[in-house]
Design a protein around this nucleic acid. Structure first.
Lengths: 128, 128
DNA sequence: CTCCCTTTACGAAAACGTTCGTATTAGGTT
DNA sequence: AACCTAATACGAACGTTTTCGTAAAGGGAG
């Protein structure tokens, strides 16, 4: 019975996002990805990953000289947790209100819109 | 040229949400609403609102003994900012990925789904 | 082995967010 | 006026997050 790790902080979430995209990565790899977006020191990323290891947010593979880090929880679950939190805190529990905001904040491509429609249809079908 | 206020913190966002729902309110009113959800001290809310005033997140009407606070920015804009941040930080800039998560996390009602479809159609129309 | 370069480990400062205790002030009642 | 209640003001404590400097350790090249 291992208890769930705590919610990731904003910076931790950003790192997790990189790891989900790239797969198990070294500190250097994560740092370079993050640094491209915004100046980010190497030891800063290292420290964060060490903390995240202690928290149980990532798993560390020490077999090689440069350790490799991987998320311990699936992307889906963590994202739902974060989104659910936000919906409760600021959108009165209504996910559709968040959806509308998201769509007006950053327009989706036509393909993405189609996929959203497909998901809506699927929910429709399940509900019957 | 007044510069934009900073992003609200989680607690501040919760307060703003109350103010958007209820309109200009006193500390006491906000505190009672929040306290119903989770124990929240009076001076805690007061302090937060004072900080938010200094940050420019809310406007304060001091004409009455019990000051009234109102959000300075419209709900839409703040929510878009928050959602946009989250999309960038954790969803690789893809709002549709967040939308899909939101929809699978908390199902929307049929009416809400219709409104989402309508919004997608509207985007479609604008894009032409 | 020694010299480098890269990585990890660690601590601590700095910034931030949240909560609360206490003092002060305003206004109404007697 | 003296008093009571409810509100504001303020500072400080506390925990957390983020950043960075510095030291130690690993491993390869000469």
């Amino acid at each position: 019975m291992t208890k769930d790790p705590p919610r990731p902080t904003p910076s931790e979430l950003e790192i997790l996002s990189v790891l989900w995209d790239a797969g198990p990565s070294t500190v250097r790899q994560v740092q370079q990805t993050l640094d491209a977006r915004r100046p980010t020191g190497y030891t800063t990323v290292l420290k964060l990953l060490q903390i995240m290891t202690k928290k149980g947010l990532v798993r560390r593979d020490e077999r090689e000289r440069a350790h490799r880090y991987a998320p311990r929880l699936p992307r889906e679950r963590t994202e739902q947790q974060i989104v659910g939190d936000l919906v409760d805190r600021a959108f009165g529990g209504s996910s559709s209100r968040l959806v509308m905001r998201a769509l007006s904040a950053r327009k989706a491509t036509p393909e993405e819109r189609d996929r959203i429609r497909a998901l809506l249809d699927e929910i429709e079908r399940e509900r019957r």
